[in-house]
């Protein structure tokens, strides 16, 4: 049994070269490829995990936002409803108040109008009654009545304060005796009677049919009313005042 040492050495070198070449050409590249794939897969998985986490966070955020929006919407709705209710109630109250005011104004107006109407009615009635009274009293005009008025005038003159009597007397034009009709024959009697009670003054007669009946003394500054007309106007004044 002989071993060829040249062959042994050659084969050893051959196998060593083969080991080196295959290590360069086969084992390392393939192992590097596997390692690269593993690294890439790991990176991918990590990235995917990160992305997943991000997506989860985004989803949570979106959900949160949606819930916020929903609650906000609810709040807005509630606020709007409250506002609307408040506005409605305010409007209602306003309208109510306005209506009340209108009603009150209307009532007042009605009352005023009623009052006015009533007053007008009263005034009309007063006028009417006074017209009636004037007409009636005009028919009642008679010497008796004139005599009664004359005596009444005398009484008034007698009760007159001194200042008034002086004011009546001092008129330079004299005192006018107003009668509804021309007294005629009575003129002298009346003149005498008045002069007796009043003193010495210039007297002249005027006719005033408006008096209806009665005798009045008129000067520039003073009138001594003593007639139906004066009575009626007094009554009218009183009625108007009462109304």
């Amino acid at each position: 049994m002989t071993i060829d040492f040249w062959g042994l050495g050659l084969q050893a070198v051959n196998v060593l070269i083969l080991v080196w070449l295959l290590s360069r050409l086969f084992w390392r590249p393939v192992a590097a490829a596997i390692a690269t794939r593993q690294d890439t897969a790991l990176t991918l998985i990590n990235t995917a995990k990160a992305t997943q986490a991000k997506a989860d966070a985004a989803l949570a955020e979106v959900t949160q936002t949606r819930a916020d929006i929903s609650s906000e919407r609810t709040a807005v709705l509630v606020a709007a409803r409250k506002e609307a209710e408040a506005a409605t109630s305010a409007t209602l109250a306003d309208a109510q108040a306005k209506a009340d005011a209108l009603l009150a104004a209307a009532k007042t107006e009605i009352a005023t109008e009623t009052e006015t109407a009533r007053k007008a009615n009263a005034a009309q009635a007063t006028d009417l009654s006074l017209d009636i009274a004037t007409r009636l009293l005009g028919q009642l005009n008679s010497p008796t009545v004139q005599a009664a008025f004359l005596s009444q005038l005398l009484l008034s003159i007698a009760e007159m304060p001194a200042a008034d009597r002086a004011a009546l007397k001092t008129d330079p034009n004299g005192v006018r005796i107003a009668t509804p009709t021309d007294p005629g024959a009575e003129k002298a009697v009346m003149e005498k009677t008045i002069r007796d009670s009043l003193g010495d003054v210039a007297l002249h007669f005027v006719t005033d049919p408006d008096l209806i009946a009665g005798v009045e003394l008129r000067s520039a500054h003073f009138v001594l009313h003593n007639s139906w007309q004066a009575d009626l106007s007094q009554v009218r004044k009183a009625v108007k005042h009462a109304a």
């Binding site: 071993i3 060829d4 042994l8 050495g9 084969q11 050893a12 051959n14 196998v15 060593l16």
Partner: peptide
């Protein structure tokens, strides 16, 4: 062959 196997064993 002896040489190859011997070389492998030596390696």
């Amino acid at each position: 062959k002896l040489e190859t196997d011997a070389a492998l064993a030596v390696l």
